[in-house]
Amino acid sequence: MTVTIKRIRPVLISVFFFAILNALSPLSVAAEDPPDAKTITGAGEHFSWVILDELKPDLERKYGRIIKLFGKESMLGAGCGKGIKKAKENGPGHETFGFVCCPLSPEEVQKEGLTAHPLAQEALLILVNKSNPVEDIPIEKVRAIFRGEITNWKEVGGEDKPIVVVLRPHCPDRPGHWKTIVPALDQFRKDRLDVKSEAEVVQRVSDFAEGVGNIGATWIFSSDEKVKVVKVSGLAPTAENLKSGKYPFTQELSIVTHGEISGDLAGIIKDVQTSKAFKEVGKKYELVPRN
C-alpha cells in the first residue's frame, strides 16, 4: 500500500499544480471588430472553425459576403455558450450565428428564441499519451476509468501506473457529448483534472504519460502533441461505426440562429448542411451528415 501511495503522490501533485495554473490563467477572447453590414460573424465550438474555414472561400464568393469565424482560439474556452451568445446578437446590419456540439432542448430553444440547424454527428475520441502502450479499451472499461472505478493502467493491459483523468465538463445541463461516456457529472471520478477547452484536454494528456481524455473528431492534431487515439472494444471512431450505432461516444454538431435571418445567411447554412463540399469535409473527419 505504501508503494502505491508513493507512486501516485508525484502524479497527484503535478495534477494539482496544473489545476492551479488553469484556475489562475487569465482568459481573453480575441477582440472583434465593430459590426459591418457586409460581414456575417460566427462563433462557438472549435468544430465550427475547422469545418467552415474550409468552406468559407466558396461561400464568400457565392454570396458576396465576408464570413468571420471565431473558434480557432478554443484554448480560451469558446464553446456552446459563446455560440448561443453570438447567435443572439443577430440583427439588422449585424448578422451573426453560432455553433454548438450539444442538442438543445425544446424548452431552451423556445426560451432563447433559437433555431437549431443540424449539421453532423461527430465521434468523441478517447485520447491517451503516445507513450502509453494501450491501443484498445473495452467500452465499459472506458466508462469505469472515467467513473474512477479503474485507476491503474495495468487493469486495462497497460503499465503499472495511476490513471490521470482529464475532463472538459462543458454544458452539464445539456444532453449528449461527454454524457455518452458517463451520464452525469457527479458520477465522474472526483480527483480528475478539469479544463476549459479541448485544446487543454490535448495539452494535459500530452503532459501526463498517465493521462486519458476525450475530444471531438474535428480536432487538428499537431506534430508536437504527444497523444494518440485508442479504439474502444476494437472499434475505431469512423463514420461507418457511428452510422451503425456501434461506436458509442458521440456528439451532435449544429448551427444555431436567433430570430429572423437574411436570405444570405439562410443560403449559407443550407449550403453548409447539404453541399458536396461539406460532405467531403465530413469524410475527412469521419462525420455523419444529418442532411
Results as ranks from 00 to 15, higher is better:
2 T>Y: 13
3 V>M: 14
4 T>W: 11
5 I>A: 15
5 I>R: 15
6 K>T: 08
8 I>M: 06
9 R>A: 15
10 P>R: 02
14 S>L: 08
22 N>P: 05
23 A>M: 13
25 S>N: 11
34 P>N: 12
36 D>P: 05
38 K>M: 02
39 T>R: 15
39 T>P: 04
40 I>C: 02
43 A>K: 05
44 G>M: 05
44 G>D: 01
46 H>Q: 02
46 H>T: 04
47 F>D: 13
48 S>D: 08
54 E>S: 15
59 L>V: 08
61 R>S: 09
62 K>R: 08
62 K>I: 09
63 Y>Q: 03
63 Y>R: 02
64 G>S: 09
65 R>Q: 14
70 F>Q: 14
74 S>D: 08
76 L>E: 14
83 G>F: 09
87 A>R: 03
89 E>D: 13
90 N>V: 02
90 N>P: 06
91 G>V: 04
92 P>H: 10
95 E>P: 07
98 G>R: 03
101 C>E: 07
102 C>A: 03
103 P>T: 06
107 E>Y: 08
110 Q>K: 13
112 E>V: 12
112 E>I: 03
113 G>E: 04
116 A>I: 13
120 A>V: 04
120 A>R: 10
123 A>D: 04
124 L>W: 04
125 L>I: 05
126 I>N: 02
127 L>A: 10
127 L>M: 14
128 V>S: 10
128 V>M: 12
133 P>K: 13
133 P>R: 09
137 I>K: 01
137 I>R: 00
138 P>L: 07
139 I>C: 05
139 I>H: 10
142 V>T: 09
144 A>F: 02
147 R>M: 12
154 K>P: 01
157 G>Q: 11
162 P>A: 13
164 V>S: 06
164 V>I: 13
165 V>G: 00
167 L>G: 03
168 R>E: 15
170 H>V: 14
173 D>W: 15
175 P>R: 10
177 H>T: 08
177 H>C: 14
178 W>S: 13
182 V>A: 01
185 L>E: 12
190 K>M: 04
192 R>Q: 06
193 L>Y: 00
197 S>L: 11
198 E>N: 13
200 E>A: 14
204 R>D: 01
205 V>D: 06
207 D>I: 03
209 A>F: 10
211 G>V: 11
212 V>A: 10
212 V>P: 08
212 V>Y: 07
213 G>A: 03
219 W>A: 07
225 E>F: 02
227 V>G: 09
228 K>T: 11
229 V>H: 06
230 V>E: 15
231 K>Y: 07
234 G>A: 06
236 A>M: 01
240 E>P: 07
244 S>Q: 05
245 G>M: 04
247 Y>N: 03
251 Q>N: 15
252 E>I: 11
252 E>Y: 01
255 I>G: 00
258 H>M: 02
261 I>C: 01
263 G>C: 04
264 D>A: 09
271 D>N: 07
278 F>L: 12
280 E>P: 01
289 P>N: 00
289 P>V: 01
